Amino acid sequence: MKDVKAPTSHSYSEYLIESLKEPEESAGYIGAILEEKDPEPALLRNAIRNVIEAQIRMNVLSESAKEYHEKLDQMLTESGGSEIYSLVELLEALGFKLEITVADVELLAESESTDFVESELSRAPANL
């Protein structure tokens, strides 16, 4: 009998990490967990780890983000996330909602690169 290779598929974990490379996807993922009516600190810790893993794979995780993650992970382990979920509950009781969104850092980077290209173009001699 011939060796038959079955097509392989990525595991859900791999799919999840790949999808979390998109900042909007990561924001929605963490936001959805914070919106749960029955808080599960282990899910929040896991979600944050998955987002961190996605950033590590993209090679964009800063040293300060690593340090903050370690501190937050320790806090969530020790307290069960009670502070974070208490904040969410308080805000809801006040009629507010905690929302996770993507920072405008990307927009700044895009405008800086556009400015660079425009300034370089303006310095180029005109050969008309």
Rank of each mutant, 00 (worst) to 15 (best):
N50R: 11
S13M: 08
S19W: 02
P125H: 09
N59T: 07
S11E: 06
E25I: 11
E18A: 04
L108G: 14
A93F: 08
P41A: 12
D73S: 10
Y85I: 00
A42T: 13
E89A: 02
E25G: 05
Q55N: 12
L121R: 01
L76Y: 10
K5T: 15
L16H: 00
K97G: 02
G95Y: 01
A6E: 10
H69E: 09
T8Q: 07
L91E: 02
E18L: 01
V88D: 02
P23G: 00
L44M: 02
S82W: 04
V88S: 00
S62L: 09
L108D: 15
T101R: 14
L94S: 09
A109S: 12
E14M: 04
E70C: 08
E67F: 11
Y68C: 01
D73C: 05
I100L: 04
E18W: 03
P39K: 03
K21A: 00
H69L: 05
L72V: 01
I56M: 10
P39V: 00
H10Y: 10
K71A: 13
M58Y: 09
M58I: 04
P41Q: 13
A47W: 08
Q55R: 15
S79A: 10
S86R: 02
E92P: 08
K37P: 11
L90T: 00
E110F: 04
G95C: 05
L20S: 00
K71N: 06
E99I: 13
V105T: 14
A126M: 10
A6P: 01
D38H: 09
Y12F: 12
E14N: 04
L72I: 03
H10N: 09
M75G: 03
S86E: 06
A42D: 09
E112G: 07
S113A: 10
E110I: 06
L107S: 08
S11W: 03
Q74F: 06
Y85A: 00
N46E: 14
L34H: 08
N50D: 15
S113I: 08
I84M: 03
G81N: 09
S11V: 01
E92T: 03
R57Y: 07
E89K: 03
S111E: 13
S19F: 02
G80Y: 07
S86Q: 04
V105C: 11
K21N: 02
I17R: 12
A42W: 05
D73P: 06
N46M: 11
E110M: 06
A124W: 07
E63N: 13
E112P: 06
K66R: 14
E118P: 02
S19I: 02
N46T: 13
I33L: 12
K71S: 09
S79P: 01
M75D: 14
H10V: 05
P39G: 00
M58Q: 15
F96C: 09
K5R: 10
T101S: 05
L34V: 10
L72S: 00
I56L: 14
A54V: 05
L43V: 04
P125I: 01
L72G: 01
E40R: 06
K71P: 00
T77M: 14
I100R: 11
E118I: 03
Y68A: 07
Y12P: 01
I30K: 05
M75N: 13
E35T: 08
L87S: 01
V60E: 15
E99C: 05
S119W: 06
P23A: 00
V105K: 13
